[in-house]
Design a protein around this nucleic acid. Structure first.
Lengths: 146, 146
DNA sequence: CCGATTTAGTTAGGATGCTAATCAAATAGT
DNA sequence: ACTATTTGATTAGCATCCTAACTAAATCGG
């Protein structure tokens, strides 16, 4: 992550801006501030997840499975694509969620290689208990940092 | 990181906003977008670093050592504090930078436990070659994403 | 059809981060 | 001055991510 407390100094940015006229020091400063803010929020959210026995990725998989009522299941590769996380990571994450009874796995009806991941009631329950805190944490963070 | 391509739907946010009146759906949507943007930029920068044989953390250590001309050296714990990265990680990162000749380590004059980390000419050179690309990557990213 | 390519998922190996525990040196309290 | 606590750095163990290589199933082209 990008947890820099001390961002590059304004002088440092100005020095580079002088050398490259297309560079806007404010653009760069904004980007660095954005990465710092995102990191801090992510860290807070991770604390929330770990208290609930989840990780960022485990949470996101559950949320993604819950978010489209018309799609009761998603395949490994669909999860990988939508979360932008590599397939090997999704494989192990789904395995761990399955061990916990939060999701179940079924062979896909039409493609013998594919596996359908389904959100199970315990997974739905843990998600439901976490979502209010999740959204409020984000909401509060944004309220205090704008 | 937080690479979600598909953020929670607006409906989903509105549903929660209805339950918690202090929650502003736009706040939350902005936060999720921010985390996604930060993740994408970070991924781009990591590509840049790895081409130069560095990692995010290795780069940040070099930058931090270079950024205060009046402080030619920093201790492990100062780097840890300023970069907001745990001390064990700084220890191993500094060790690897030292193996590459980019920094050197000296016992601190006043505190027998502490170690001073100094930026060496090869480290300064690699940093100097990378900084323009670093700032321009950030600048371009911000130009295209605002 | 049938070999060649692509796609889905997994396994293997490596990088990088964390916390907890440890060791040594410095500091604080009596 | 001496014990107890704190602080700086390291080690050990674990979690989580990645890419590359692999297996098996599906699809494509002749």
């Amino acid at each position: 992550m990008f947890f820099l407390k001390e961002l590059p100094t304004a002088e440092m940015l100005d020095r580079y801006a002088a050398q490259y006229q297309e560079m806007h020091p404010t653009h760069v400063a904004d980007a660095l501030t954005m990465m710092r803010q995102a990191s801090l929020l992510l860290r807070e959210l991770e604390g929330l997840f770990s208290k609930a026995g989840l990780s960022q990725t485990r949470f996101l998989v559950l949320m993604m499975l819950d978010r489209e009522p018309d799609r009761p299941n998603l395949r490994i590769s669909e999860l990988s694509d939508r979360l932008d996380i590599s397939k090997p990571v999704i494989t192990t994450t789904v395995k761990s969620l399955s061990d916990d009874g939060y999701v179940s796995l079924q062979p896909n009806e039409f493609d013998g290689r594919a596996k359908d991941v389904l959100l199970e009631p315990p997974g739905k329950a843990v998600l439901k208990s976490l979502l209010p805190k999740y959204f409020m944490t984000i909401n509060d963070f944004m309220s205090h940092h704008t």
